[in-house]
Design a protein around this nucleic acid. Structure first.
Length: 161
DNA sequence: ACAGGTCCCTACC
DNA sequence: GGTAGGGACCTGT
């Protein structure tokens, strides 16, 4: 996590972490209701290039041209964890799936709690769109904050239909 | 063992 | 008929 950028893009503040080869390791989202764009770079100047790449990929997602943020990244997961996260990319914008459905898709009949745990540990939200997984009776949780999940879904559904 | 972003049935009101 | 509470169910660490 030696290379890092934080920046505002209404209504969010992004925090991004890369390794030295430009593989994205981690993404954090927070609210930032300021229209003043502010960027901070940490590490060497390579990070500027990484940031530009990310912005390009993010805007593609934001304009609904991509189902998720498609960017070079490193996913430090294996087995079912990996399988579950990859499945997330098949959920289209404007759709959701329940923890239970997802569990069944990877053949663990009652493993919905396990699915929840895997999503809770997802370091790359939007790259692996875990916000599209909800509970059967409610929204479920979100590692970046439940309100951000609401907002993302509200926006995706609103723009799609 | 234990955790964990669940699910579903029960017992109340 | 809504909701609070609790037991069961999975796998990676």
């Amino acid at each position: 996590m030696d290379l890092k950028v934080t920046f505002n893009l209404f209504p969010f503040k992004f925090k991004l972490f890369w390794d030295t080869s430009g593989y994205l390791l981690k993404l954090n989202l927070e609210w930032e209701f300021s229209f003043i764009s502010e960027i901070n770079f940490y590490g060497n100047k390579k990070v500027l290039r990484f940031y530009e790449k990310f912005l390009e990929a993010f805007l593609k997602y934001w304009n609904l041209e991509a189902n998720f943020i498609e960017i070079k990244h490193r996913l430090e997961k294996k087995n079912l964890d990996r399988k579950i996260l990859l499945k997330l990319r098949e959920i289209e914008i404007g759709k959701v799936k329940t923890y239970k459905e997802l569990a069944e898709e990877v053949n663990i009949y009652k493993g919905y709690r396990f699915v929840g745990k895997v999503l809770a540990n997802n370091l790359l939200p939007l790259i692996y769109p875990c916000h599209r997984v909800v509970g059967s009776k409610n929204l479920g949780g979100y590692s970046q904050g439940i309100l951000i999940k609401q907002f993302l879904l509200y926006r995706e559904f609103g723009l799609k239909y």
